Simulated assay, not measured.
Amino acid sequence: MVVPAALRVVRCGGGSLHGARAVFSVGNKFLLCASGDFVKMYSVATEELVRLLRGHSDLVTGVQLAPHNRMQLFLLSDVVFGQLKMMCINCWTCILPQTFTVGYRLLALYALPTSEDSVFVIIPKSGVRGTFQLVSVKLTKAAGQHVEAKELSVILEVVDASPKCTAFGREGEYVASVKDVHLQVYFFKRKQLNRFSLRATNKKGGNNIFTCVACHPQEDCIATGHADGKIRLWRNFNHQREYTFSTLHWHHDQVLDLAFSLEGTNLLSGGIESVLVQWHSGSDYNKDFLPRLGSAIEYVTISSDGAFYCTLHTDNRISIINSNLRFAKTIQGLIKARDVKTGLVVDPRTKALVLNGEPGHLQFYSLQSDKQLYSVSWTGQC
């Protein structure tokens, strides 16, 4: 009698590409994005998946280049005893110099050039379910690969869990965080906290709920996105009562992400319209558009030299765009429909997995290269 072997699940591909903000490597040769418990490294020039970086056994919730060593990568893990891992990505190797265990679920990570021995993370607040706080974690310089990082300092008591709702200002002098209809700004040197609030709705029926925030890299200016599609530019917020803001409006629904250009002269915004909007000098009348990007824009990333933009979309697509808003490359992951109506079929010619994707389309997905080869419309409509 033959004893049946234990079932072994082998993962071939198709993971989510839009769960966390992607980052460009030094020199913009590669794009790195979280995908399940991997970090996928794509070639910007060829769109090919060139390497899978392994280092976590659980969901990777954040990826960021270390500001003091651009050849190192911070990985964030969403487990009960959260881990922060530094991974070397030099020479096509995957070396894990140190793992810092914080002891909490880690939902967002911010590493600043002005804080060499510490990082900022968002963790659940102890004893209060559904409440999160921003804390500073001291990275102990201790020998060994596994280190416990227990020295935490609370910066903001109540913040949104989304990494898009907290941003650090010019040279790390302050941090801005939005939640519901409240904006709070904490100044590190003065240890001063200013709070600003909006009405939930205005007289014209607008929805003022905050959805995201970004800080100008060189000026004291904060950009906030809202549920009704408006963008507010806040200034003079170091004074509790004398603050001012101006309004930009093009999006017809909530603003999903914001990002300032390298010099801060342009502001990028994305939403459900599948259009990347570039606002020049904070003007409501001077803007450019890159339309028809396929689906809602969930994240916007700008390379460290400002040469490339990257947008992550809800249909598991990555768009790489030149700074002049010329479309460059697209990386299409597996489109996950609610129901796989077609079943799973293997195309004998391309060896691709064939299943339904976008409404009215069949997608041919290569498990070997972990990317979509092409999509075919069976309705005759593109």
Rank of each mutant, 00 (worst) to 15 (best):
166 T>V: 15
121 V>E: 02
266 N>Y: 14
83 Q>E: 13
81 F>P: 01
7 L>H: 12
111 A>K: 03
241 R>K: 14
183 L>G: 03
272 I>F: 03
235 R>K: 15
50 V>E: 11
245 F>Q: 07
136 S>G: 02
220 D>Y: 12
156 L>N: 05
236 N>A: 09
335 I>W: 13
28 N>K: 11
127 G>L: 05
341 K>D: 07
68 H>E: 09
161 A>E: 13
71 M>E: 13
326 R>S: 11
147 V>E: 01
345 V>S: 05
36 G>C: 08
50 V>I: 15
184 Q>M: 08
146 H>R: 09
243 Y>A: 06
67 P>D: 03
313 H>D: 01
186 Y>M: 05
257 D>L: 00
266 N>R: 13
358 E>C: 02
239 H>V: 09
163 P>Q: 12
177 S>G: 03
3 V>Q: 11
341 K>L: 14
194 N>E: 05
85 K>L: 13
78 D>M: 11
104 Y>I: 04
176 A>P: 00
227 A>T: 11
334 L>H: 10
31 L>V: 15
39 V>G: 01
6 A>C: 08
379 T>F: 12
77 S>H: 01
150 K>L: 13
240 Q>M: 11
348 P>H: 06
249 H>A: 11
38 F>V: 08
343 G>T: 07
167 A>K: 04
114 T>S: 15
95 I>V: 14
17 L>W: 11
279 W>E: 08
298 E>Q: 14
279 W>T: 13
